[in-house]
Amino acid sequence: MGGAGSGVIASGGAVDAHVHLWDTGRFSLAWFRPELGLPEVADAADLAERSARATTPIGPIAAAIAVQAADTTDEVRWLTALRHPLLAGVVVQYDPVAAPGSASAGVARSGVVRGVRVAVPGRRADLADVAGLDELCEGIGADGGVVEFLVRPEQLPAVGVVASRHPATTFVVCHLGLGAAEPDESWAAALAAAAARPNLAAKASGVVTGRADRRLRRALSVAVDAFGAQRLLFGSDWPMSARIAPYDEIVARTAAALPALGAAGDAAFWGGTARALYRV
């Protein structure tokens, strides 16, 4: 696949590269609790209704990538069986405890699966305790898929090291490696270190908070400086983001907080890079 975001940027409308879909009546989510204020069912039809109210600088949301919310086999089977015009692909979760026989390993070659997410913010900063990681990266890279990382800021340099060991694999950092943390100088330096790898991109997802948007502007400015628009992707993090604001407001606040990207940069950030990386 080459460098992240390399090659021709396809047209065809905006892409939300990070949403979650679930049905807690069909399978359990270990982290799900009623006090979180999240719906028990988050389905593609609901996503389509909410995203239809949003307009990005390149037009309406035309496609979405669903990222597995937990790591059970029942969830994988349900998610990969979903069919909806908006749903363009699925990223399944890697379970390092079960590696290499995790649920994701068995479906990585499925037609709807576009990649595997390594969600390890609770692991060591150097990621040395994530079992089977190099094997996973080699296998997904050979299939032309994407390896995503959900990590805390201190782990970002290690993600860059992993990317350097697997130059033929495309990597994507979720939530800018930031999430709800403060975009301080330590995070900015770690993000820049990771971005030095040309086969690594990042999602501007999960970074809209209830705090003042100067924080969001700071985070997006640092990300654009580190990656350029060609290696950044928009993600709403719906329905997690619905606790902060409606879908259309998440889009609008992200657009307002971004540095000026120009027409080509807007095309890449809001859809083109996601279309290239996830084969939309």
Rank of each mutant, 00 (worst) to 15 (best):
M1E: 14
G2Q: 10
G5P: 00
V8L: 13
V8W: 11
A10L: 14
S11A: 13
G13I: 00
V15R: 00
W22H: 04
D23E: 07
D23F: 03
R26L: 14
F27N: 07
F27M: 09
S28C: 12
S28H: 12
R33G: 09
L36R: 15
G37A: 12
P39D: 07
A42H: 07
A44K: 00
A45V: 04
A45G: 14
L47D: 12
E49F: 14
E49V: 15
E49H: 15
A52C: 03
R53D: 11
T55F: 15
T56C: 08
P57A: 02
P57L: 08
I58C: 04
P60V: 09
P60N: 08
I61C: 07
I61H: 02
A63H: 14
A64C: 10
A66E: 03
E75G: 04
V76Q: 13
R77H: 11
T80R: 12
A81E: 10
L82C: 08
R83I: 08
P85L: 10
A88L: 02
G89L: 03
V90N: 01
V92F: 05
Q93V: 13
P96M: 00
P96F: 00
V97S: 13
A105Y: 14
G106E: 14
A108I: 13
A108N: 11
S110I: 05
G111F: 06
R114G: 06
V116N: 03
A119L: 04
V120G: 02
P121V: 08
R123H: 14
R124K: 11
R124T: 06
L127N: 11
D129W: 05
D129G: 04
D129Y: 05
V130R: 01
G132I: 02
D134P: 05
E138M: 15
I140F: 08
I140R: 13
G141L: 01
V146K: 08
V146G: 01
V146M: 01
V147W: 03
L150K: 09
L150S: 11
V151G: 06
Q155N: 02
P157N: 05
G160W: 00
V161E: 14
V162N: 01
S164I: 02
S164D: 15
H166S: 08
P167A: 07
F171W: 10
L176V: 02
L178S: 07
G179T: 01
D184H: 07
E185K: 04
A190N: 13
A190R: 09
L191C: 06
A192D: 15
A194L: 15
N199T: 12
L200H: 07
A204Y: 00
S205I: 08
G206H: 09
G206K: 03
V207Q: 05
V207L: 01
R211M: 13
A212F: 09
R214W: 12
S221N: 10
A223R: 00
A223V: 04
A223Q: 05
A226V: 11
R231L: 10
A242Y: 02
I244Y: 08
A245M: 06
E249V: 14
I250Y: 06
R253N: 15
T254D: 09
A255Y: 06
P259T: 03
A263N: 11
A264W: 06
A264V: 10
D266A: 14
D266K: 11
R279L: 10
R279K: 12
